[in-house]
Nucleic acid binder design. Structure first.
Length: 602
DNA sequence: CGCCTTTGACCGGCGC
DNA sequence: GCGCCGGTCAAAGGCG
């Protein structure tokens, strides 16, 4: 029952308020003829929603329905006999006749109303309980004789007490959820503000760099479209590293000769016969990291680039599958034994578009081989299906988080971990940021399955459980769910941060990538975020037996505004574009490794 | 036949 | 300079 009550505050809150959920209960609204009933109709509706979405409640039994039907007079049946769909209809039955309500109310008040209800802080409980017990007690008392009336009276009192206690508990939980939502909203706003601040700072830097960059462009003889800086990972254009075209990305800097060097923000200094990265284009793709940096004047920028391009997002999840399903197509291009881990590490690159710089590594955790660690790097340079978009958004947003945090940290502005805690107050155990690692890495730990009860522990915590089996993510696009918790929030923060947006760019075209990338490079967009959000929320609620968890997911998706229904609805199916490596089992390592461990990933 | 995985080789970075 | 290690390439072979 605890889970069901979660919906109470959510839907009465203007932020999350999607009262459409309740529109299938019009009779509920109509069943309250008096104003003081109407005042709290939301809670009635919510209660009815709970029951509508789930099997009849286990802790509160309302025998009123049966009796109420007995109460009906033949004359009323013709007009008011209603078919109630798939839910407890104690509301519906009560609305047959105002007279019945009045009688019942009188009855209730005679029995215990004056004693029990006059102390209610508000009229809700009084009214609620009046309505609930009305048919039970009134009908019984009207029919039964005195003896059974006493028994029924006691029983009614007992039920009344139970119901009242339950309502109080629901109210408390309602309040708790309100607080939680307020907290989330507050954090969200704070982070938005912070992001705006960072953006403004970044814009200043960018402006300065632009001036310097103009000089370099002149010197280098290249006039290329300005590349804009993204707080996050590099953009895609950077690494159009057709494997067939470049033998080895970093081996000689020959990439500079490719046609993309302008887009990469790399120009050839004809005076010095050297590659020069323009200062105004620090936002480089994954592969650009290998471009030699010879210009000492861009040292700081290059350091930032070095950080950015190597930022990684690591996802830890329990899975018996060789890979988690993140909705993308991957091609394995290598496998190595990593030191300190008996399981080989597999290297994949995205094959959904030629030259997509995104890569990922998949490896079993050394300590617990049931845990699959997937590390993502880079941004896609092509549209993605929703499921894949989700993970892409996550990785990019997480990287953005990491990088903005680390860069700010360098200025003493913000500790990335503080940022992480700010952004993810819920997830001290779910997300960690390691800026000290060889590559700055955000780790999202899904192995510690959030207990739905955690939702109720503290208003400051939101842990989002996953609808499908949390212990096994096999074949489930588990990672695609992440953005609802993590990535999309950031993604939308960048969207909200109007300062980041190009004036001439349709915000709806903004992907998780650089804010000012060429539009052609942007990913497929959540252009129907509202619809998707509602759908996702509905689906989450409908699909998840754990109502609290579902509501939490709904809150998240609503707040994030960019949920992808596929990720929820189809979380047990493999998207059409899904990863292909069905036989991507780890095999004994290759020559470089001393591996003797053959691990068919369990 | 095209796409994929496998796997030996190669390269760069880093520490000693 | 050397060796280790992570990461990548690319030829060879498998598979549908």
């Amino acid at each position: 029952m605890a889970k069901g009550s979660s919906g109470l505050s959510l839907n009465s809150d203007p932020i999350a308020g999607n009262n459409n959920f309740f529109l299938h209960h019009p009779t509920v609204l109509n069943s309250f003829p008096e104003d003081h009933h109407h005042r709290h109709h939301n809670k009635w509706k919510l209660t009815s929603l709970m029951d509508a979405k789930r099997s009849p409640p286990s802790t509160i039994q309302f025998p009123v329905c049966l009796n109420s039907s007995d109460y009906q007079e033949p004359s009323q049946l013709s007009d008011d006999k209603r078919t109630v769909i798939d839910e407890m209809d104690f509301f519906a039955d009560k609305k047959h006749d105002v007279k019945a309500i009045a009688m019942a109310t009188t009855n209730i008040n005679n029995h215990h109303g004056a004693k029990d209800n006059c102390n209610e802080p508000n009229g809700l409980e009084l009214n609620v309980n009046t309505g609930l017990n009305l048919l039970t007690t009134s009908d019984q008392s009207m029919v039964d004789d005195g003896i059974s009336s006493n028994m029924e009276d006691r029983r009614a009192k007992s039920e009344y007490a139970v119901a009242q206690a339950e309502l109080e508990r629901l109210n408390a939980e309602n309040q708790r959820l309100r607080d939680m939502l307020n907290q989330v909203t507050s954090n969200y706003s704070i982070l938005q503000m912070h992001l705006i601040t960072l953006t403004q700072q970044q814009d200043k830097k960018s402006d300065n760099n632009e001036e310097q960059g103009e000089e370099k462009k002149q010197i280098g003889g290249f006039l290329a479209p300005r590349q804009f800086m993204d707080l996050g990972l590099a953009t895609n254009t950077a690494d159009n590293d057709e494997p067939s075209q470049s033998s080895s990305e970093g081996r000689s800097g020959e990439r500079a000769g490719s046609g993309n060097n302008e887009e990469n923000g790399v120009s050839f200094d004809q005076d010095n016969k050297q590659l020069v990265r323009r200062d105004d284009s620090p936002d480089q793709g994954y592969g650009a990291n290998k471009v030699p940096k010879f210009n000492p004047s861009s040292k700081n920028v290059d350091q930032t680039e070095a950080t950015m391009r190597k930022a990684r997002v690591s996802v830890r999840a329990r899975s018996e599958a060789p890979m988690i399903n993140d909705g993308c197509q991957w091609r394995k291009y290598g496998q190595k034994m990593a030191k300190g881990n008996p399981c080989p590490r597999a290297y994949y690159r995205c094959t959904m578009a030629a030259g997509c710089p995104v890569r990922k590594q998949v490896q079993r955790c050394a300590d617990d081989q049931a845990i699959l660690i997937t590390t993502y790097e880079g941004n896609h340079n092509h549209p993605l299906p929703p499921a894949a978009m989700a993970m892409a958004s996550t990785t990019s947003a997480a990287a953005r988080l990491l990088l903005s945090g680390s860069m700010s940290s360098a200025d003493g502005i913000m500790d990335p971990n503080i940022l992480a805690r700010t952004l993810l107050p819920c997830s001290s155990t779910m997300a960690t940021i390691s800026a000290s690692a060889p590559f700055p890495t955000v780790t999202l730990d899904l192995t510690q399955t959030p207990n739905p009860l955690q939702l109720q522990r503290s208003p400051n915590q939101i842990n989002i459980p996953f609808p499908n089996s949390p212990q096994n993510f096999t074949n489930a696009p588990v990672a695609s769910l992440l953005p609802q918790i993590f990535g999309q929030a950031l993604y939308n923060q960048s969207k909200f941060s109007g300062l980041q947006m190009s004036q001439d760019m349709d915000p709806s075209q903004l992907g998780h990538q650089s804010k000012l990338q060429p539009p052609a490079l942007h990913q497929g967009q959540p252009n129907s975020s509202l619809t998707d959000t509602v759908t996702a929320a509905t689906a989450a609620i409908a699909a998840d037996p754990n109502f609290t968890a579902a509501v939490a997911a709904a809150i998240t998706s609503i707040i994030n505004g960019g949920a992808h229904p596929n990720n929820i609805i189809n979380n047990n199916s493999i998207p059409a574009t899904t990863t292909t490596n069905s036989n991507a089992n780890f095999t004994p390592s290759n020559s470089n490794s001393n591996g003797k461990f053959s691990s068919e990933l369990k």
